[in-house]
Amino acid sequence: MIGWISYIVFFLILASIYAIMALGLNLQWGYTGLFNIGIVGFFAVGAYTFSILATPDQVGHLGGYNWPFLLALLGAMVMSGIVALIVGVPTLRLRDDYLAIATIGIAVSIQLIANNLSWLTGGPQGIYNIPQPLANYFSSNLGYNLFFLGMMMFILVLVYVGLERMVNSPWGRVLMAIREDETAAGSVGKNAFSYRLQSFVIGAVLMGLSGALYASFIKYISPTLFMPILTFQVWAMLIVGGSGSNLGAIVGAVLVWALWTGSGTVVQWLLPADIQVKGGAIQIIVIGLVLMLALLFRPRGLLGERKEVAAEETKSKISNIQ
């Protein structure tokens, strides 16, 4: 029984970390129409910045600043925001696809840096001994994880309420107006580039926050944790949950994460030991199929915006082809 409870607590903590990322993506894609496929890059920047700032003395690479938890969290968010500015400024004026290409580029580059720039990131060995907040006050692992889950719920509610207020404010309405028709929004004096950049940076900051919390929860990070598949998972979460709905992003995060861990267990149980290495590939194929089917048959997801406005966005040049 205890085993089950600790498993569920562990599952929910990770699901809520993913949910924060999905919420960040929802602001970028769901409300602003920005196509970010370098989510894992911003997540990694948050995780590494937090780890470098918050760790006690480190050997062989930068770190040992011993910053308090909240301050390091803030540092991680700022750093992710700066990276988002670097990617956003050259690309957000151009057509959508360029941002997509640039974000995948930054994610690849960040992974390269994590792997190779050892003095900064610890290289392939990664960073150990990442502190957890208030860990000394708990004697049992389960007790601490329950506390961490509580903290995650608090942060998630905070992010959710914050985002809901933002998207329902005049600012949020401008975002959606730009998404639907940039020329019309421009004609009433709204600078599309500036609003897009704001939305992109705020979304990236949330991804950085999520990365920092992840690093703190698992206490150890290395480059192998930041593979492109993570970006894909978050996209699947948002599309399944319904882009344009913050609640949808959270529901999608829990569902897709359950599907991911569930399919992992099933694959492990079904496959003989000698082809276990292929298990991960099969898991990815399962998630890929779910994403494709959602896109093809339920493009608005479970809880997505009902209004059909987004559909009229850019008329594909050859939309009339069968």
Binding site: D97, W235, I239, L295, E312, E313, T314
Partner: peptide, 15 residues
């Protein structure tokens, strides 16, 4: 292509 949402083509190609 028939749905007219150009960027969902990009997500689909990523998938």
């Amino acid at each position: 292509r028939k749905t007219n949402i150009q960027v969902s083509l990009v997500i689909a190609s990523f998938g």
